[in-house]
Design a protein around this nucleic acid. Structure first.
Lengths: 146, 146
DNA sequence: ATTTATGCAAATCGTTTGCAAACCT
DNA sequence: AGGTTTGCAAACGATTTGCATAAAT
């Protein structure tokens, strides 16, 4: 999904819940679209000078409620945020660096996703658990930290 | 690994860093061993009446540093703790309930682990990332919350 | 005796919220 | 005007820490 489409989609989702697609919300979405990986609050504020932290948090919450953004938990306890898979238009996993905390996106192979689906089916049967999604993270050292 | 072996192993690991395997530490380990799934602080304290919260946290930290316990992040922001895979003697994944936050252990099939290894290899090549471990969580509804 | 562990209360830190002013339609 | 959004400062909640006491070796 290209940038204009992303903004259009996010605008629609906000409108659906009676929210406005404010300038700040647009720049937050722009920041996340540019990054292509989950960002923490500091990184988001650095890319949006003059924005108050509380407004950033509040708008990210709104965007999460609208299904436009998702929260990602990395190795440290700082929350990270990125555009939702719905808005991005593709499913992906994460590479989590234990040293610097950076998280990168990783698009899985169809074969891997098939293995996940099979695992989910098995778990549903064995543990009587209703799987709605999965999370797969590779933990280790990023290129900069090796 | 059976219970006495778990205690012995944890005791060794603590001794290695000049720590003592206190009564409280033993009961904390006992609590986690009994549970067989990651517990949050409340659950741990409920099973150890009279223990102060700070002591629980402090000792869990010590056990984590000793490699005897690992922290697990679920759906909510409450940390959850369980015996480390080293001490348990087996690798596993997690079933995370989005409604009640409960996390259960799930031992993967060899086929799935093979798929993970392949994914790790691929990521290492493509993203120049040094994978040391992986995290696979199935998110959904547990039997009680369906 | 000397080191380590404990409990209490206070501090920390990421995140959330109350409120009054600014904004949009 | 009527609702939404903003920034500031204060509140929140999980976790950590300082300190004085208790326990273990």
């Amino acid at each position: 999904m290209t940038d204009p489409e992303v903004h259009h989609e996010v605008g629609l989702r906000l409108a659906e819940q009676g929210g406005r697609y404010t300038m700040l919300r647009q720049t937050l979405v722009e920041t996340m679209a540019k990054a292509g990986r989950p960002l923490n609050i500091t990184e988001i504020l650095d890319d949006n000078p003059g924005t108050s932290q509380s407004s950033a948090y509040r708008n990210i919450s709104v965007l999460i409620e609208a299904g436009a953004v998702q929260r990602v938990s990395g190795s440290d306890d700082h929350g990270r945020f990125e555009l939702s898979e719905d808005v991005l238009g593709h499913h992906h996993h994460h590479l989590v660096c234990t040293t610097c905390g950076r998280v990168d996106d990783l698009v899985p192979s169809p074969a891997l996703e098939r293995a996940f689906a099979e695992a989910a089916r098995r778990a549903a049967r064995k543990a009587d658990f209703d799987v709605t999604e999965h999370r797969f993270d590779l933990i280790g050292l990023c290129a900069q930290c090796r």
